[in-house]
Every structure is written in C-alpha cells, then in structure tokens.
C-alpha cells in the first residue's frame, strides 16, 4: 500500500518531492487561516439595543414615576430574535467554518447564558445585575478582538472591565447611565470601526 519516494525521480512526474509537499501544506493552511467572519452587525444591534434600554431606564427613574422602568430591557427579546435569524441566514451563505468561528460563536452564546442566569438570580445578588453583566461582557468582547486581531474591540473589553468595577460603587439609577456610556464606548465605537474595515 505504501510507496517509497525518490525525490529526484519524482521531479519528472506529477507526484511531489518532500519540499513541494511541505510548501503545498503550508500554503493551504495559510489559505484556510484568516477566514474568521467579521461581523459588526451584532455589535451595532446589541450596542444600540442596550444603550437605548439603559438610557430609557435612567430617564424613567429620574424623571417619571413609572412603576416598572426595567421593562425597557424587554427590548433584548426582539434583539435576540433578530440575532438568531441573522446568524441562521449567515450560516447559509458561508462555505467554510473554522475552529475560531466556533470558539467565537460559543464564547458569545456562553455569555448570553450567563446573562440570563444573572437576571434569574438577580435578587440574591442585590439586583447588582448591570455591574455583573457589564464586567462579564469584557471577556467575550476582548476575546473577539483577539480572534479578529482587531484592537478597538480589545480596548472595548478593557472599558467593560473598568466600567464593571466602577458600577459596583455607584447608586442604582446612575448605573444605567454609566452602562449606556460603557456600551457606547465598548460596543458601538469598535462596532462602527469594524464595519468600516469590512468594506
């Protein structure tokens, strides 16, 4: 089943000599690299959703006596649906899926699960939901920056680590205002920069 290889003889026919083999392997691996899909769509969608929700809650708390201002966060439900539809459509047009694509996807799904968990146990953590969610969001944002080799997103991650820490020490109402700023800086600014780089 196995054949011997004589490099000199191989030059005269279609098979490869060891150096050609290695060159081929290297060039194919290089082709497959850098295939990570960039998608500014999610950063812009979620950036705007969370900024509007947070600002909405802040305004409702500060200037009105609406009973449950936190319902603004129901905006995340349509955003979640739009994300799901968009990702299904995207997967239909993609011809290759790399390990990094998978890691990228699951880091964010994992983060999403954590967010749901934090909301569910909200009472046990004295409703410090925003600080925890903002601090947690530093990791997937930073990792996405590393995967895409895109520094602005890595800085976005740093913003969330810093903002997450600060949020623990400010009054509840102000948390929403600061969160909105943090998301604008950490999602929207890099999101628009990413979008520009995709063109």
């Amino acid at each position: 089943m196995f054949v011997s290889l004589n490099p000199d003889m191989e030059k005269h026919n279609e098979t490869l000599n060891p150096h050609q083999s290695l060159d081929l392997i290297t060039s194919m691996i290089r082709q497959a690299k850098g295939n990570v899909r960039k998608s500014s769509f999610y950063f812009l969608l979620w950036g705007w959703t969370i900024v509007i929700a947070n600002l909405g809650v802040y305004i409702l708390i500060r200037f009105t006596d609406v009973k449950n201002p936190f319902l603004m966060f129901a905006l995340t439900i349509p955003a979640g649906l739009i994300s799901a539809i968009y990702s299904v459509r995207q997967s239909k047009t993609q011809t290759v899926s790399t390990h990094l694509d998978q890691i990228h996807k699951w880091v964010w799904i994992g983060y999403g699960i954590n967010c749901v968990l934090v909301v569910v146990v909200g009472k046990s953590i004295s409703w410090m939901i925003n600080p925890v969610i903002i601090a947690m969001c530093a990791m997937p944002t930073f990792i996405t920056g590393v995967i895409l080799k895109f520094k602005p997103l890595m800085w976005g991650g740093v913003v969330f680590w810093a903002a997450g820490t600060v949020l623990f020490f400010v009054p509840m109402a102000d948390q929403f205002l600061i969160s909105a700023f943090a998301i604008a800086l950490g999602y929207l600014v890099p999101g628009y920069m990413l979008r520009k780089s995709e063109k």
Partner: peptide, 17 residues
C-alpha cells in the same frame, strides 16, 4: 502523496468543516 488530496487534507486540517 498526491497534490490534490494533500491540498484537501491540509485545508480540512485547519477548519472545522
């Protein structure tokens, strides 16, 4: 040890599918 098969295998090495 054939150009096309090796090429395919090298590509599949680096991706999920």
């Amino acid at each position: 040890h054939s150009q096309l098969r090796l090429g395919v295998m090298s590509l599949l090495m680096s991706v999920e599918s």
